[in-house]
Design a protein around this nucleic acid. Structure first.
Lengths: 195, 195
DNA sequence: CCTACCGATCGGTAGG
DNA sequence: CCTACCGATCGGTAGG
């Protein structure tokens, strides 16, 4: 099937680009190198993708969508704030560990987006962060979380999570779910009210 | 004084490059843009610096030196492991907040170093991380810290610290020392043994 | 998916 | 610190 072959080639391009953007950065990666790694000429890439930036967009928005989707599911459960927060942290880890390279690109290279893409991306990012801030604020109001600057706490937690890619090894001795639970335990006991 | 003027110009170049590398990345910043921001021609930069990479080296190694120096002072105090760890976290925050842009470059752009510089940089980085790992291991042995994967814990803590630049505002409502103490409190209560 | 090619821009040098 | 310039490389297009 021609359509499937094209789709698969497009997928290969995005996948190879993800590895390159991660290790050399978006600006440090050239379309020629990308093509060479796939065994084709640079010009041939443009029958599958419109531009270099389009590839970056696909990667960034796919991961952003993943994060927002699982977060909506967590919120739908309507548990107590600190339990929602725990679930949200674990799910965040699962999304990241499922595709470490794409997550690294998502986190480090989105600044190279331009125009409306960049605006839209920042909106999604802000929306995601705001949920964490709100959950912490709710937890403070209900007494589960100690009095703390909720924005400060939320961004610190998200920083820890988003840097997983710098040390996580898929073949390490910690399974993804374990990583999430360990991190949730560690980060939440730091803001929880002592009983 | 001619020498001072030259030194000051060199300092200006490094300072402006730091801002650019932070916002657009090393590979995304050109020597022409850098020169334009300083009001001179690109070729003129080369009477002050040997190459683009030399500028990056200066930034990365200066910050790395800062981190290692304050860490040595903390270790010289020979407190109990968890107290050394607390001091180390606070000092790390002070170094970062003293120069947020350079710290961001240090953390995000060192991968663009090459050859011996890169090797040497990684050695310093590893040495620094190893001290944190050792402190946690000691804390576990002395019973102050709960049983945990010390490498996992150390790298999580350092990730949180190194991402300060993504949210820290020098004119915000948290003073540098406060940031450090809040973070130390939050991160350490997550690994401390319950009394 | 290729060859052939475009204009723009890159890091850096020579010589003053 | 400048003018003038180098070879290399960039993202991307035309046409097949």
């Amino acid at each position: 099937m021609l359509i499937n072959e094209k789709a698969s080639r497009k997928h290969q391009i995005e996948s190879e680009a993800t590895q390159m953007f991660r290790s050399k950065g978006y600006a440090g990666s050239s379309m020629r190198d990308l093509a060479a790694n796939l065994g084709i000429e640079a010009a041939s890439l443009y029958s599958h993708v419109k531009s270099k930036e389009e590839i970056l967009q696909k990667i960034c928005f796919r991961i952003a969508q993943n994060f927002l989707e699982v977060l909506q599911k967590v919120l739908a459960d309507k548990k107590r704030p600190i339990e929602s927060l725990r679930e949200a942290i674990i799910m965040h880890c699962l999304v990241m560990t499922r595709d470490v390279s794409a997550s690294a690109v998502f986190w480090n290279e989105w600044k190279h987006l331009s125009g409306k893409s960049k605006e839209e991306f920042i909106q999604m990012k802000t929306k995601y962060e705001d949920v964490f801030i709100s959950l912490i604020s709710e937890g403070i109001n209900s007494g589960e979380i100690r009095s703390i600057d909720s924005k400060f706490a939320a961004l610190t937690i998200l920083s820890s999570l988003n840097c997983i890619h710098t040390w996580y090894k898929p073949d390490g001795n910690l399974a993804p779910r374990q990583v999430g639970e360990e991190l949730a335990g560690m980060l939440l006991s730091g803001i929880q009210n002592k009983k």
